[in-house]
Design a protein around this nucleic acid. Sequence first.
DNA 1: ATCGACTTGTTCACGCGTTAAGTACGAGGT
DNA 2: ACCTCGTACTTAACGCGTGAACAAGTCGAT
Lengths: 187, 187
Amino acid sequence: MSSITPRETAPPHRAGPETSAVPTRWLDDEQQNAWRANAAIMIRLPAALDARMQTEAGLTYFEYMVLSSLSEAEDHTMRMSALAARTSSSLPRLLQVAGRLEKRGLLQRSRVPGSGRRTNATLTDAGYAKVVEAAPRHVVAVREYFIDVLEPGDLAALGRIGAAVGVAIDQNTPGLGAADPPAPASD
Amino acid sequence: MSSITPRETAPPHRAGPETSAVPTRWLDDEQQNAWRANAAIMIRLPAALDARMQTEAGLTYFEYMVLSSLSEAEDHTMRMSALAARTSSSLPRLLQVAGRLEKRGLLQRSRVPGSGRRTNATLTDAGYAKVVEAAPRHVVAVREYFIDVLEPGDLAALGRIGAAVGVAIDQNTPGLGAADPPAPASD
DNA sequence: ATCGACTTGTTCACGCGTTAAGTACGAGGT
DNA sequence: ACCTCGTACTTAACGCGTGAACAAGTCGAT
C-alpha cells in the first residue's frame, strides 16, 4: 500500500523534462515506509501537542516555547531576535505572539538604552508561574507521544538523524533563515 | 545547553497544581537531545520541502500530495472525503485546494449521480503531466534531506518509531480526526 | 407519500504566519 | 556636522487553514 509517487505508473515516466539522463532513484519499500512514518509524525505530532497545550494550559505550543525559552535565560530575559532564533520562528511571527503574551501580562518588553534598537523580552511573575504550571504537563505529553514509546537504541538514533537532517537542510536550502550557528529548535 | 523546561529551576517547581503527588519525570540529557532533534525535524523539514516544491514545480507540498494521491488511484479518481483522509487534511482545506487546482486545470470535480452528495475528483491530463514532472524532483528532495543522510539501521528504526508514535497519538488524543483505520499520511 | 435523521460537500468568518515595506537607532566616512 | 549604511525592530497586506454554520441529497420509519 502506498507509494511516494505513482507506482506502477512510475517507471512509465521515463522522463521528467530535464531528468532524462538521470534515471530517478525511486524509493524502495523500506525507504518508503520510513519516509511515510516520518511524514506522519511531522504532521500529527505537532498538532497533537498543540491541542494538549491549548486545552491544558491555554497556550499554543509555540507560545509555550517562547515562555519556556525565557524561563531558561539569565534573568528571564532575552533579546527579541535571539528569542526568534531559539524558537525557530521569523521575527514578525515572534513579534505578534510577544504582543499577545504582553497583553496577557505574561511577558514584558523594554528597549535596551545604550545599544541600537535592541529590545528585551522579560518574563513577568505571572508568566513564570504559567511556565511552572505548564512544564510538567508538557513533559507528560512528550513522554506519552514520543519518549516513552521509543526503544533503547532509538534515542541515540534520533539524535543522530536530527543532526544529519539539519545539516542537509542547511546545505541544500538557499532561503532558509537559520539565524544562529548551532541551530535552535527549542522545545 | 537547552532543556525542555526551566532547568536549574525545574526541581524547585515541586508542584504543578495537581501534580503535587506525582514528582514529574523530567527528561534526561539523552532524551532531551532526541526530542530536540525531532522537534527540529518537525519544524524545518516540511518548510524545506514546501519551498522546494514551490520553486521547482509551482506546487505546494500539500497540492503535490493531492495530485500524487489521485495519480495512484483507480482511474485517477477519488471521492473528496477519501482524498481528505488520505492527505491527512480537513475537508474544508481540501475543498479550497481542490478549487484552486480545478481553476488551474489540473483536476476536475463531478458529482456521482446515484449516491447522495458524493463528489469525485479526477486528475486531468495536465494534472497527470504535472505529477509526472514533479515526482522525480520530490524524490530527489526527500533523498537529499532525509533518506540519504540516514545510516543503515535508521530506516527500520524510523518505521518502528513512526508506527508507535501514531498509535500513541491515537490512544491519547481525544479530538484527532483520523478518518480511516490504517491512517494515511500520504505524500 | 412524508417526515425526519444522517451523510457529504460547500461556504463563511476569523486568526495566524509570511512577505514586503517602513522606522528608529548607532557607526563610520568625508 | 552631515550623510549614508547596516542593524533591529515594527507595521501592514495578503493568503491559507480551521471551525462553525449551511445546503443538498438519501434512506428508513410511519
